[in-house]
Design a protein around this nucleic acid. Sequence first.
DNA 1: CTGTTAGCGCTTTCAC
DNA 2: GTGAAAGCGCTAACAG
Lengths: 340, 340
Amino acid sequence: MPTIKDVAREAGVSIATVSYVLNNKSHFVSARTREQVLEAIQRVGYTPNMTARNLKSSQTRLIGYAWHREPGDQVNAVLDRFIYFLAQAAETAGYHLLTFTHPVGQPLPVYDELIRSGRVDGFVLAGTVQNDERIRFLLEEEFPFVSFGRSNPQWDFPWVDTDGAIGVRQAVQRLIELGHQRIAMAAWPEESISGKHRLEGYYAAMDQAGLPVLPEYIVRGEHTESAGHHAFNAWMDLPESARPTAAIAITDLVAIGIMNEAEARGLTIGQDFSLIGFDDTPLTQYLKPSLSTLQQAIPETGQALISMLEAILSHYRDYDRHILIPPCLLERASVGPPRW
Amino acid sequence: MPTIKDVAREAGVSIATVSYVLNNKSHFVSARTREQVLEAIQRVGYTPNMTARNLKSSQTRLIGYAWHREPGDQVNAVLDRFIYFLAQAAETAGYHLLTFTHPVGQPLPVYDELIRSGRVDGFVLAGTVQNDERIRFLLEEEFPFVSFGRSNPQWDFPWVDTDGAIGVRQAVQRLIELGHQRIAMAAWPEESISGKHRLEGYYAAMDQAGLPVLPEYIVRGEHTESAGHHAFNAWMDLPESARPTAAIAITDLVAIGIMNEAEARGLTIGQDFSLIGFDDTPLTQYLKPSLSTLQQAIPETGQALISMLEAILSHYRDYDRHILIPPCLLERASVGPPRW
DNA sequence: CTGTTAGCGCTTTCAC
DNA sequence: GTGAAAGCGCTAACAG
């Protein structure tokens, strides 16, 4: 590989001059010299060495992102899509993503090592939880990062998140519009932050419409298909006059459980029972019936996070540290007017 | 961040000595000095700067991997799983993954830039096609890489691939074992290499069992759900005595199309018609009936690729340049004995 | 055994 | 305007 020296020799100038034109410090260089250098660069086929630049400037133009492997060999469809757009946005900003993994429950040593060895300029976090230890750690270390997802509301850190409250609210409103009155929700355990936000949207819509929410309407469970079975059974155990005619599932996988359980009981989703999931997981559009769902604005989220991180790394002052992006309701065959 | 100088000062030795203990050139250092240095490292909390090391050694310990975004906003479930295990294997070998994207159909400039700027030590390719231009390019540049997937058989390059022939053969044999005789296959267009291999497995199993393969049994199509509809319709258009009672779908998405079309025609998959897909795409286990499928050995593949690349980067001589890994048949509810 | 020193390729201050 | 030279943090001859 040719170096800056080769270019200098070829152009008959010093390496400093080459560096000037490389870095657009053109005001220091005469137009003629500039031309010569540019030609020399072409001739020898020179591209600046990133490692050397990085050493000199004490940066890496690398953003760290940790993989999330779900338990039980599952995938996280949202994050799989997310990271692609994150990478793309990062590249546009002149960065690359350095991806890494860490032992389950032991993220900190890996983050620490990456920081101390100067491997990355900043991090993008995803899959944050309440009191996320990574956030606490990075805040403490004062190391640049942005987060896809909120955490402890007491902590002041930059994040972008899907506005689950708005999304679910909109979905419930749509069901109400279709004539549903008894609407249930399959929710997540209390600890989940995004679960809490989505549930808030549900309550908001029901309250606004003056519709009662029976305690039994809210069934909490994990991110599993069987949580859907359980929820649906709980609803069907209610006396007929109280049974919900529609439901929001906190996630598509739970929605699938609900669908399967309903079909097993001889009910037709979309006709006898309306259902809206969350995430637009791949393949859900091909289910019979196709599943209505709230799709997160993944590309925009990735873009927003990178812009934010870029602002931080460039020490800009003015930028939003908290961005909420509403999801988009995709109405498919799993919803319809109530049968009764 | 403390540097090697800080450690040297703290330990009262030269930076060379610190470097020696850091790089386990301990034979040059007395046990006592070694101890002192180690303690000093602890005290000042020192971690070697990767960029500096990299500059010195002209490497990056970074492996480039390009994202593949499928057309039409689809995901590639196999690659999404793959990259996680690839990252993990890379880390064990002391590397990290640098991920990047490139304009559709224009990969080369990005690969070139990454090489010229010394950003990565090697590449892992995935989603290879016939006469893959990336392979041709990297071969020409003599830049280290390994490939998940084969390409032009004339080219000599290191790859790991799923043994689709073995997998499909095994799947067909299983169907035969259950009593099926008229077995069809939804295949890919002729250009697809892996499509060709999988089809070979189909023919091998049918031949071995002495079962005839009507030309109509092979229906080629893209990686879409509608390709499944089309295939199933084509089969059902055959005179009843010739209609297949089971089929292999080249991919789960096509299998879903087949399932949906069959159900629409009032047939029950698993009873009236047996079906096996390919890839174990997430959620397919929750379909009704759950889809039998050939699951690629993704973790092993990632590991094998990294070992191979590591061998190349370390200039080892002895290593397999071509590794075929058989997939695993997951038998679920979509298969059963033929009804007739 | 340990230290001095010359770079790795680049940016940038400071002279000229 | 341009160039000489220092130095980013580290490794590895080479001296001693």
